[in-house]
């Protein structure tokens, strides 16, 4: 029998630096299982790692720092540490991309799109202008959908009139206060595809929906809701749905 030797490719090392609090035994164990080195700021360093993620309770300052080199992303630590964070987040950082994982409450409260936009322009050398604006538009739509329709499960039609809007606000408050729904994660992963393309995935942890059906629908110019996916389809070089509609994969020509 021929013996084929496959060259050993060591797994890229990812370090997670915890920006506030302590590293519990549980968190240390979770990180070990995920192949992550974990250390506390300010003593921990990103030196020698192939990718470095900042983690902690999220604030605009910490998220912004996580989106800026030497970091390649920010992960909000929930009560259960990194349980529930998608593996795609760590894989993206290992492969040289940028990741953001926030619980729904913070994804709603922070200016998530602007924080991401700053990080992408910086880390991916994306100049200001039409393409960067279009990427912002699509990210804003996808994050809004992931929070409102995905994780909080609020349907579109509520915002069709000012009366409906009042009801929408009531439902929104109720659902943001729900400990199960508000702990669902919204995750954004960004990868350069060669010099000419950029892929951004936005994922939620809701019930999923018929993304293909929604993507193929035309929207009236004076519609008060339901425009987001149509806009994304118009702008992106390609759009795909994964995980029964919980993940939107958008590829942009740079």
């Amino acid at each position: 029998m021929m013996n084929i030797s496959v060259p050993h490719q060591p797994m890229a090392t990812v370090t997670m630096l915890v920006g506030d609090g302590v590293i519990s035994e549980d968190l240390a164990g979770q990180c070990a299982a995920l192949g992550l080195r974990v250390a506390l700021l300010p003593d921990g360093r990103c030196d020698g790692a192939d990718g470095c993620i900042l983690a902690g309770a999220s604030s605009a300052g910490l998220v912004r720092r996580g989106m800026t080199p030497p970091f390649s992303g920010f992960v909000e630590l929930g009560d259960e540490g990194v349980l529930g964070v998608g593996l795609r987040c760590f894989e993206t950082v290992r492969a040289g991309g940028l990741c953001l994982s926030l619980l729904t409450g913070q994804a709603y409260a922070l200016n998530t799109m602007e924080l991401l936009s700053e990080g992408i322009r910086h880390s991916m050398n994306l100049p200001a202008g039409k393409v960067a604006d279009q990427i912002d538009i699509c990210m804003g739509e996808a994050i809004g959908n992931a929070v409102i329709h995905g994780n909080l499960g609020i349907p579109n039609h509520l915002r069709a009139t000012s009366k409906g809007f009042e009801h929408f606000r009531h439902v929104l408050h109720e659902r943001l206060a729900d400990p199960v729904l508000s702990r669902r994660r919204v995750e954004v992963n960004v990868m350069a595809r060669g010099a000419d393309f950029l892929t951004i995935t936005v994922s939620d942890q809701g019930h999923g929906f018929d993304l293909a059906g929604k993507l193929s629908r035309d929207v009236q110019s004076d519609a008060k809701s339901g425009r987001g996916l149509g806009l994304i389809r118009k702008i992106c070089a390609s759009v795909l749905g994964e995980d029964e509609g919980r993940t939107l994969v958008m590829t942009f020509a740079r």
């Binding site: 739509e141 409102i148 915002r159 009139t161 809701s225």
Partner: peptide, 11 residues
């Protein structure tokens, strides 16, 4: 501005 914000302007 996102499509939700735009929807608010239509309302």
């Amino acid at each position: 501005i996102d499509s939700v914000g735009l929807g608010l302007l239509y309302i």
